[in-house]
Amino acid sequence: MTGWEVPIGAAIAFAGGAIATGIAQSKIGAAGAGTVAERPESAGTVIVLEAIPETLVILGFVVAAMIIIMVE
């Protein structure tokens, strides 16, 4: 029987990833905006760099999902 701890744990896992991604993306986004303003030709690279922290939130989601599924 699962208690209330499981969804909380899953939420923490997901939230951690999401917050970290937010922080990372805000920094990269600002720098990226600056770079694109100066050198528009590097926009492609900047989008790729901006997308990389996205992996964190996906990882968080996966971990959250695993917690819920495995504990059941």
Binding site: K27, I28, A30, A31, G32, A33, G34, T35, A37, E38, R39
Partner: peptide, 17 residues
């Protein structure tokens, strides 16, 4: 605005010197 933006712009400009 944080320094990341400024820094990136300045570096972009510096690279064009």
């Amino acid at each position: 605005m944080d320094s990341g933006y400024v820094n990136a712009r300045i570096r972009g400009m510096y690279s064009r010197l």
